[in-house]
């Protein structure tokens, strides 16, 4: 990739605009973005548009397939699956987003500190990240989940640890690039603090790759959350979550496959659209593919 010229503070915005413009040429990525936004809307409006409450049990209508009253059918306790899928989306998608945001924030802080101070601070932090990365991701989340206990917030914390090393390394690399630039010294001579200058140059440049990583990260977190539910950790019932619904439906896969199809489709759709968006963003950032 060609060396990006660091520009002044104001250029951050135009860089953004260029990327968005590039993105709009990519029909596929736009499709992904549209699907994702639509999904977000649907799940945000879940309390308004769901036909039933997600906890409502109708013991006379157990494990029914799709019908007029229950578009997606009912589960083994007589609850409407469409409503549960919509509500579950709120938990699943927000868990993915928040854990990624948390990972990005923490990663940014850690990576910047490592890059800025250099020397032994950098070494220690990098080794620490090495150690965390040498543990298979799912395992680390599982152990954390066991320690923190089940629950929405705890799961977000447990999941976010996975994204931290990646984001931290990114930020560190950016920080190192920027730190050595001459205009830093030049700015210092006119009394701007070193930190402020660095921040104003580093952040706009690093945002783009961070966003790409974050987009893929959200998809990964959603899948990891569903793996946690498989094992029995994660969000507590009766709060619905796509992964939990999917895992729960394993027992019924022979007799009532519809219980597995709809949460599965929901996860698939979300992950797909996020990946399309991520791919598009990555292409948009690549100056060689610029149009």
């Amino acid at each position: 990739m060609a060396e990006k010229k660091s520009r002044g503070k104001g250029s951050g915005n135009s860089e953004f605009k260029t990327i968005l413009k590039q993105l709009s040429y990519n029909k596929l990525a736009m499709l992904g973005a549209i699907i994702f936004v639509l999904e977000l809307l649907l799940v945000l409006l879940a309390p308004v548009i769901s036909p039933y409450n997600y906890e409502e049990m109708d013991t006379t209508a157990i494990r029914q397939t799709s019908s007029a009253e229950h578009l997606f059918g009912t589960d083994d306790l007589g609850r409407d699956i469409l409503s549960r899928v919509l509500y579950a989306g709120r938990y699943s998608i927000t868990m993915g987003i928040f854990s990624t945001l948390l990972a990005a924030a923490l990663g940014m802080v850690i990576g910047s500190i490592a890059g800025y101070f250099g020397g032994w601070v950098d070494n220690v932090i990098m080794r620490f990240l090495d150690i965390i990365q040498s543990l298979p991701g799912l395992l680390l989340s599982i152990v954390l989940s066991a320690v923190l206990g089940p629950g929405y917030i705890n799961t977000i914390l447990a999941l976010s640890v996975n994204g931290i090393p990646g984001q931290a390394r990114l930020l560190r690399a950016e920080m190192l690039k920027v730190r050595g630039n001459e205009y830093i010294e030049a700015s210092q001579s006119i009394n701007c603090t070193k930190l402020r200058v660095i921040a104003s140059h580093m952040i706009p440049n690093s945002i783009s790759p961070m966003i790409v990583q974050a987009t893929m990260g959200v998809a990964n977190m959603i899948i990891m959350a569903s793996s946690l539910s498989f094992i029995g950790l994660g969000v507590q019932p009766p709060a619905p979550e796509w992964g939990a619904m999917l895992s729960y439906s394993r027992e019924f896969i022979r007799s009532s496959p519809h219980m597995a199809i709809f949460p599965g489709l929901a996860i698939a759709l979300t992950v797909l659209s996020l990946n399309l968006m991520g791919d598009g963003l990555r292409d948009a950032l690549d100056p060689k593919l610029r149009r």
């Binding site: 990519n26 029909k27 596929l28 499709l31 992904g32 489709l265 698939a268 797909l272 399309l276």
Partner: peptide, 13 residues
């Protein structure tokens, strides 16, 4: 290009 997304969804479905 659109085909790709549609094909993916069809495969999944």
């Amino acid at each position: 290009r659109k085909l790709r997304a549609i094909l993916a969804m069809l495969l999944v479905c």
